Computed example of a mutant assay.
Amino acid sequence: MNPVAKMLIGLGIVLIMIGLIWQIGGRFLPLGRLPGDIVVEKENFKFYFPVMTSIILSIVLTVLSLIFRWFR
């Protein structure tokens, strides 16, 4: 099989898994509303910066890339 096709199939499976985890896990782990996320609300202004969510996603993506590299 063509290596590009394998990569696209693998990427599709990973995206489906992420979508399912996001859909199911969103009820239990409120990504985007974690302690440590910065929210500033004023009368006509709302500033939102998800610091803790960014850190968690970075750790998860790093672990996934290490796992993929390990099985390569």
Rank of each mutant, 00 (worst) to 15 (best):
K6D: 04
K6L: 10
K6E: 10
K6Q: 08
M7F: 13
M7W: 10
L8I: 15
L8P: 02
I9H: 04
I9C: 08
G10T: 09
G10F: 05
G12Y: 00
G12S: 08
G12F: 00
I13Y: 00
I13V: 13
I13R: 03
V14K: 00
V14L: 03
V14I: 07
V14R: 01
V14C: 04
L15E: 09
I16Q: 01
I16E: 00
I16S: 03
M17G: 08
M17C: 09
M17D: 04
M17N: 03
M17I: 15
I18L: 08
I18Y: 00
I18P: 00
I18R: 04
I18V: 14
G19P: 08
L20P: 01
L20V: 13
I21Q: 07
I21K: 01
W22G: 00
Q23Y: 15
Q23F: 11
Q23N: 03
Q23C: 01
Q23P: 00
G25H: 11
G25L: 14
G26M: 10
G26C: 02
G26F: 14
R27G: 09
R27N: 08
R27H: 10
R27Y: 13
F28L: 12
L29E: 02
L29Y: 02
L29S: 02
P30F: 07
P30D: 08
P30R: 08
L31I: 15
L31H: 04
L31C: 07
L31N: 04
G32R: 01
G32A: 06
R33Y: 11
R33S: 14
L34P: 01
P35Y: 06
P35M: 01
G36L: 05
G36E: 07
I38V: 09
V40Q: 10
V40F: 13
E41P: 02
K42Y: 11
K42S: 08
E43M: 09
N44W: 15
N44V: 12
K46L: 10
K46S: 12
K46Y: 08
K46R: 15
F47L: 13
F47M: 05
Y48S: 10
Y48V: 13
Y48T: 15
F49N: 00
F49Q: 05
F49T: 01
F49K: 03
F49P: 01
P50I: 02
V51I: 12
V51N: 10
M52H: 07
M52L: 07
M52G: 03
M52P: 12
T53F: 07
T53M: 06
S54Y: 06
I55M: 01
I56F: 02
I56Q: 01
L57W: 07
L57F: 13
S58E: 06
I59V: 13
I59K: 06
V60A: 12
V60I: 15
V60C: 12
T62G: 12
T62P: 05
T62A: 12
T62Q: 06
V63G: 09
V63M: 14
L64W: 11
L64T: 13
L64V: 11
S65F: 14
